[in-house]
Each structure stands twice: as C-alpha cells, then as structure tokens.
Design a protein around this nucleic acid. Structure first.
Length: 665
DNA sequence: AGACCCGGTTTTTTT
DNA sequence: AACCGGGTCT
C-alpha cells in the first residue's frame, strides 16, 4: 500500500498525467467538457479549488472526474465524495454509473455527518465510543439541555436566561466555528454575558450527560471524527491509507470544523478537490463563512485554483437578473457568469393584490405552462421560509395540482413518529435517556417528576430495563409493568426493524389514539415509517439513517395522488440548493419576509439573504417569476401595505418586466 | 405535589 | 403544529 502511494506521488510531481493518452479512455473527456472543466476533471494528484458559478456544471465536473479516475485504474473504494445531502450523493453516483459503468457506484460517498456516523461505528473503539451510540437530533439535544436547565433552577421570571434553542445554538456554533463559547456570546449575544458562568456550566453537564449515556449530537459526530482522524492510532491510519482521493461539493457551505476534517482526511497525501461558489454561501447560521472557501489555499498551500464560468443552465436574461442581484453585494469575489443561451424572456416581477391573489396567480400560471407542454416536474415554487407556502398549498389542492414540499417540518420531526422511534431507540441503546423520558411521558399519570424519578433509578442501576418498576412500591403504575415488558422484549428480540416496529405498534396504538385527535391522518405517517423500515436489516442502521438522512417528507404534504411521479416542487431555497427547473417562482419577495426581519440586525445576514435570492433566481433555466403580495396580514396591525423586497425594487427596469395581478380571477 | 387542560403565541434556513 | 404559562383537578 505504501509503495503504491509513493509511486503515485512521483508521477504527479513529474507532471506525467498531463501527457495521458486520451484514446485509452472510453469517454472522450476533451470533447464532452469545456476547457476549464476538462482541466479539473483530468487533475489527479494534488489539491484543487474549483470555483464554479451557478449552473456551470459542477456536478458534471465531479461526475466526470470520478469516471476518469476509475478509468485510469484507481480503486473506486479509494475515492471519497462528500456532498451536502444524501440526495446529491446518490444523484452523482447514479450519473457516474450511467456515464461509465457500475464501478462508479462503489465509491464512498455521503454527507460529512453520514460519513462520520459510518466511520465512528466502524472504528468505535479507537474513537473512544460504544458502537451502538444513539444520534440526537436537534430536538433531542434541546430537550436534554432543557432538562438540565430546569434542574439547575434557571427558569425564573426575574431572570432572563437563554432558552433551550438559544443555548443549543450557542454550543453548536461554538463547535462548528471552533470559537470558544465566551466569544460567541460576546459577539452574538452580549446581553447574556452576565449569565456566562451558568451557560458554561450547563454545557459541561450536557457534555458529561451525553458521554455517560452513549449519546452523540450532530456536532459530536463531526468532533469525534476530527479527533479520530488527527489521532495517531492504527485505526485511523488504516482508514486513511485506503482513502486516496477526497472530493467535497458545496465547499462554500462548510465551516471550520469541516475544514479540519477535510485536512484530516487529505493531509496524508494532499489529494483533495473541493468545489464551490462563494456567491451561493447560505449556511452561515451553521457556522459556514463564505470567506472560508478562500482560505482553502492556506489549508493546502500547493492548491491550484480553477475557475469555471460558462453557465449552461439559464438563458441570458435570467443570468442578467441574477448578476444584478449579486452586484448589490458589498463583499464579493469577481466572477462573470456567461452563457451561449442568448435570448429568453425577461424575468417577471409580479405584484399581487394580496397573498391569496399571489397563490391564484401561481396556480393559473402553472396551468398555462402545462398547456404549453411544460411538465409539472419541471416547475418549482421557492420561498425563504417554509410557512410562506401555506396559502398556496390550499389553492394547489383546490386546483388538483399534485405537489411535494421540501424543507420545513419533516416527517421525522412529527411527534407521533418520534414516539415510535423512541421505543426503538431504547431497544437499541437502553441508556438513551431522552427516549426513556419521551416514552414515560406518554403514560397516564406520569409527568415530568415521576419520569425523572424513574430515570434516576435507571441511572443508578437500581432499576433496569428487565425489571419493571411495578416491583418498587413508589412506581406502582400497572401500565408501566407492561411498558417495561415491551421494552425488554424489544431489547432482547433480534429481529429486523420492521418486526420490532410491529411490536411497538401493538403497544403504542391505544396511546396514540388517545393522544392525538387527528390520529387518522397521522397513522399514514406510521405506515410510511414501517415501509421505510422494510429496507433495513439492522435496527442500528435504520435509526442512524432516520437521524441523519433527510428521508422523505410527511405524507400529509403529498397531495392525494400519492404514487404520482409528476408533481410540482415546493421548496425552501435552502433545500433547492444544486437543483434546477424549467420554470421557477419565487414568492413573498417582501421586506421583512425576504429578506427576513431577523436579518435586518446585521449587514452580514442581509448579505446572506441577498445570496439566497441569487441562489433562488439561478435555479431557473427558462422562466423566472418573482412575486409579492402588495398587502399582507399581520396580527398587530391587521392588513397593511407591504414593501417590495429590496432585491426587486433595486432591479433596473431593463432586467425585468413588471406585472400587476388584481382580483380579476 | 404533581398531572393535566386550556388558550394564546410563535414559527428562518439544516445535519 | 408545538411551546409556554397559568390555572385547575386529583
């Protein structure tokens, strides 16, 4: 293995790969790619930063590089492709397989988090973990923090103390940016500076709590991975010796912690290619900073920079519009997007009398587009926040237009799904206290206090999963006997997840019916959960995927025509990242909504809103409609006149056409 | 004391 | 839809 690595390095340094005989490849790379794409694709050894604007064929470039490396004889298993979502990873693997052959699907790929999960379970011992650790989602983390917060007696009216959401955000931001909590509070939450000691104390208890109970939150996955990679132990060397080529997509949205992981994964041979676009950085709330992409050469001093500027996606009029949006940015790196797709209609800026008119306009326009032969799957409606689409969803349902919504409340976050998963999580990891708490609270007569007492008993091992509390006088609830018996059965039955879910359902069903008035609607979600579980053989992988991967959205979001594959896409702009459609609507372009009021506080966040508009408008290939309601309802003032978003009011008149929709429908 | 019920409030964005 | 706070019931 070592010998091979040595030879490869030599070839790279002598520039051998530049004289490769192209005819030995199945794919004609030079012909199918433009010169800058080709330069990126044919790169083999070394560090590369690819700056690629929207729609310039980023994915294409990565896909071709994978194919070329494999054609060149490298083991697919030695290529690791980190992407932003599982969807993106699968898409790339699929495209690469079509392009070349099935070898392409053998490469390693996924998100930073999913890669961390797989790696940490495989090398759990070396990473200092139990292999059956439970992954906490954001809600779980908040629940634990809240529990600690109330135990510490920090909830009182006189004292203004950060809420669980805020605490979690502070800790997470600290982990992702690698800045101390103290600094985060100074910079972002100076009003909590007086509470610093308590905030740090809670963090300490939280960290300790997770460690004791075999729990990892999202950030821990990355933290443990980083530390594992930088540790000098045999296991991590073993892993690194296999990974020969690292590729990272959407690099502009990675943060300091992820940059360290990149360094840890590629530091041993320096073979790394990252692809990104500073103009599309929209994840600063997760600690990403668009300037980080420019720091890449600091991480790998020999890095070569390749720019890809020709856009293949959109017509020129849409690019002009998008470029104008981005022109307004204060800090930017010059980049010119151009296309050979001249012509195209000017983007529309549509003012509707009110929100409902906006929805009706969109429905009307979609029907028109369909008549022109545009398929529903080529149309998307994008928005800043997921609740902006509520009114539209109703109108779409009335018009019988099937749609699927991405972003916003997810199937997995709904209370009833979390209930079921909690049972399974206890079965997998009896030390999963959050799940115990959740499950205990489902029972009549058990509230926070009783649940906490039972948890204390469990923590001190005076009570175990096999010993129902009915034997202890203080917990003489008949119901709990049955609960413990069920959990014990789940814990000891080694069966596929689908069978275990069956056991949970039997127990949970009566509770479910009492707890939720709308149990009929919700039971569809449970069916879906069971269907998903059929695909898994082990409980652990099922639970891990449910925590990390954005599986599917709530069935309640899908219009009656369930299995239909022709549907309209409704999506938050964040979830639309990397995707494209023939026609795109961007709704609610109103000051206070997009850009959001919350962004008004700082220049940086306003800048990010601008990039968000840039991302939204560059999703469109042929038609772009930016709409806004002229009147909006708000609880305090009733119906008020709204102000169009600065991103459209500053648009020069030759870059868009204005339309007005009044109550004519 | 602790559980439970009601009603009002509040929603950025994601792993 | 979920969270919080306050008031009431057991």
């Amino acid at each position: 293995m070592n010998q091979k690595k040595y030879i490869l390095t030599r070839v790279g340094k002598t520039g051998f790969e530049k004289k490769v005989d192209e005819s030995r490849f199945v794919i004609n790379y030079q012909q199918e790619l433009n010169p800058s794409q080709y330069e990126a694709v044919s790169a083999v050894n070394g560090a590369f930063l690819i700056i690629a604007g929207a729609g310039t064929g980023k994915t294409r470039t990565l896909v071709y590089r994978v194919a070329r490396l494999i054609e060149s004889g490298y083991d697919p298993n030695s290529i690791l492709l980190l992407t932003f979502t599982r969807k993106a990873a699968n898409e790339m693997l699929k495209r690469a397989s079509v392009l070349l052959d099935d070898r392409c699907s053998k490469i390693r790929g996924g998100t930073f988090h999913s890669f961390a999960n797989v790696t940490l379970r495989k090398y759990s011992k070396a990473a200092g973990l139990d292999s059956n650790f439970t992954i906490l989602d954001q809600g779980d983390s908040e629940d634990i923090i809240n529990l600690i917060r109330s135990q510490e007696g920090l909830i009182s009216k006189e004292r203004r103390f950060p809420k669980k959401e805020t605490l979690n955000k502070i800790y997470s931001f600290s982990a992702n940016t690698e800045k101390p909590v103290e600094l985060i509070i100074e910079e972002e939450y100076p009003h909590f500076l007086l509470e610093l000691d308590e905030i740090l104390k809670i963090q300490k208890i939280y960290i300790d709590y997770k460690r004791r109970n075999n729990l990892l939150d999202y950030d821990d996955l990355l933290l443990y991975l980083r530390d594992f990679l930088s540790s000098e132990n045999a296991a991590s060397k073993n892993l690194l010796s296999v990974i020969n080529f690292l590729m990272v997509d959407e690099y502009q949205d990675t943060n300091k912690l992820q940059a360290d992981i990149v360094k840890g994964l590629a530091g041993h041979n320096g073979n790394v290619m990252v692809v990104g676009d500073d103009a599309q950085s929209i994840y600063s709330f997760r600690g990403a900073n668009f300037k980080n992409i420019m720091e890449f050469p600091k991480l790998f001093p020999d890095a070569q920079i390749i720019k890809i500027e020709e856009n293949y996606r959109s017509v020129q009029t849409i690019l002009d519009f998008a470029n104008h949006v981005y022109d307004g940015a204060i800090e930017k790196y010059t980049k010119v997007l151009y296309t050979k797709r001249l012509g195209g209609e000017l983007p529309f800026i549509v003012a509707a009398a009110n929100e409902n008119m906006q929805s009706k306009f969109i429905v009307e326009k979609i029907l028109e587009l369909q008549e022109e032969g545009v398929s529903l799957k080529d149309i998307a409606v994008l928005f800043r926040s997921s609740f902006f689409s509520f009114d539209l969803e109703i109108e779409l349902a009335k018009a019988g237009i099937p749609f699927q919504k991405f972003g916003g409340i997810k199937f997995i976050e709904s209370a009833h799904v979390k209930d079921v998963l909690a049972f399974l999580r206890i079965a997998s990891n009896p030390r999963d206290i959050v799940s115990w708490y959740r499950v205990l609270l489902l029972h009549e007569g058990v509230g926070p206090k009783t649940a906490q007492r039972i948890l204390d008993e469990l923590a001190t091992a005076r009570l175990t999963i096999e010993e129902h509390p009915g034997t202890k006088k203080q917990f003489a609830h008949e119901k709990l006997k049955e609960l413990f018996a069920t959990l014990y059965k789940l814990h000891t039955t080694h069966a596929p997840p689908a069978e275990l879910i069956e056991i949970v359902f039997n127990y949970y069903h009566p509770i479910f019916k009492i707890k939720y008035d709308d149990f009929n609607k919700r039971s569809k979600d449970l069916e879906t959960l069971q269907n998903i579980s059929e695909n898994y053989r082990s409980l652990e992988s099922f639970l891990a995927d449910m925590a990390i991967e954005p599986i599917i959205d709530s069935v309640t979001d899908i219009n009656a025509t369930d299995k239909e594959d022709e549907f309209l896409t409704l999506s938050t702009i964040h979830s639309a990242k990397g995707l494209e459609w023939h026609s795109v609507f961007v709704i609610h372009a109103v000051e206070g909504y997009f850009p959001s009021v919350r962004a008004a506080e700082s220049l940086e966040s306003l800048e990010e809103e601008r990039r968000l508009m840039y991302v939204a408008s560059t999703r469109a290939k042929q038609n772009l409609f930016v709409t806004y309601p002229m009147h909006m309802y708000n609880r305090i003032d009733g119906i008020t006149l709204s102000k169009p978003s600065r991103f459209i009011s500053e648009m020069s008149t030759n870059k868009a056409q204005g339309w007005l929709v009044e109550d004519e429908f």
